[in-house]
Design a protein around this nucleic acid. Structure first.
Lengths: 172, 172
DNA sequence: CACCTAATTTACAACGATTGTTACTTACTA
DNA sequence: TAGTAAGTAACAATCGTTGTAAATTAGGTG
């Protein structure tokens, strides 16, 4: 699942490739890139690309997945930069980094309250709606004195394709 | 939090120390140790000790914590054995290994349905009751076709002592 | 537009948590 | 009591992530 090959790129040649890949470079307001800049961080091509990849990703990419997509466009991108940018975005509350126990966190760009379906075979995450009434029910017994900041609902099991794969496997 | 020092014990001298530490060695039925044996696995002194440590632990120990407790009594214990035993127990559904995103999983010996409070500073886990009615509400939209095996409710935030520590820190 | 400076990126090493490997040891059985 | 399959210990390796330090660059300034 994780590529561990050599990461030896000649440094310093990222700008050109990026411009070729990105038509316009103005950070639309409300975008992750715009958020980065507004918060005083420099909007480097690397960060801009990572923000775009997150916004265009359908699901919940891992750092490694983003890194692979990024290097396709900007071969000089380093994995460390991906991590740093993700942590920066998370610190700004622009994304969340969720750890669903599948090894490595995943980027969560949907900040609306919702739950997660996690496939224990392929690690895929899907968002599911959670009845707001439930959220309220999830209260802490008063004697515990715990400051709740975040509520998580996670359902684990098998996604459709993994369930069918497993069915086949058992049959054969 | 994790001890990384040398782990160079002379091997093969575990039996004696164990007998000194454990008064009786009959695995009470229903205990983790009994479960292990019933399932055809050998009940070694190492496994027996780990089972006891789990049963006597108040909370949700990490593998590392169990290892430290174990070596206090049986210095030859290896961390690998702790991991192996935990995985064996989990495979038997005698315990659950929960990953709450604090780095490393924790042992969960309470198999009744319940939720978790996780302190983001110290990593402490506390069990909380979850209204069974809520569990039922946590349904998957029918179009998704997902086989749910497990439901998790996790509330994250600060435990009392970390909240007060943080309050002091901000004030000073 | 050239320059300055602090922020950022990069390569690489290191870390924590966990697992693979292999030779030695031991629990159970005949 | 011996035989054998299973388990253990030591150690290296893996995965995901972060620390370090040197080189590069974004964005403001004259």
């Amino acid at each position: 699942m994780a590529k561990t090959g050599p990461r030896l790129h000649a440094g310093g040649a990222g700008q050109r490739e990026l411009n070729a890949a990105l038509s316009g470079r103005e950070p639309d307001h409300g975008s992750l890139a715009a958020l980065l800049r507004q918060s005083g961080l420099k909007l480097t091509p690397q960060r801009h690309l990572i923000c775009q990849l997150i916004e265009n990703s359908d699901g919940h990419p891992t750092a490694e997945e983003l890194y692979e997509s990024a290097t396709a466009v900007m071969p000089s991108m380093s994995l460390k930069t991906v991590y740093t940018t993700l942590n920066d975005l998370a610190a700004l509350n622009a994304i969340r980094l969720v750890n669903v126990g599948t090894g490595g966190f995943r980027v969560e760009s949907n900040l609306e309250p919702h739950g997660h379906l996690v496939c224990r075979m392929c690690g895929t995450i899907m968002d599911i709606p959670v009845n707001p009434a439930i959220e309220e029910e999830l209260a802490v017994p008063p004697e515990i004195e715990f400051e709740v900041e975040q509520r998580e609902v996670t359902l684990r099991g098998l996604c459709r394709s993994c369930a069918s794969k497993q069915g086949e496997g058992a049959g054969a």
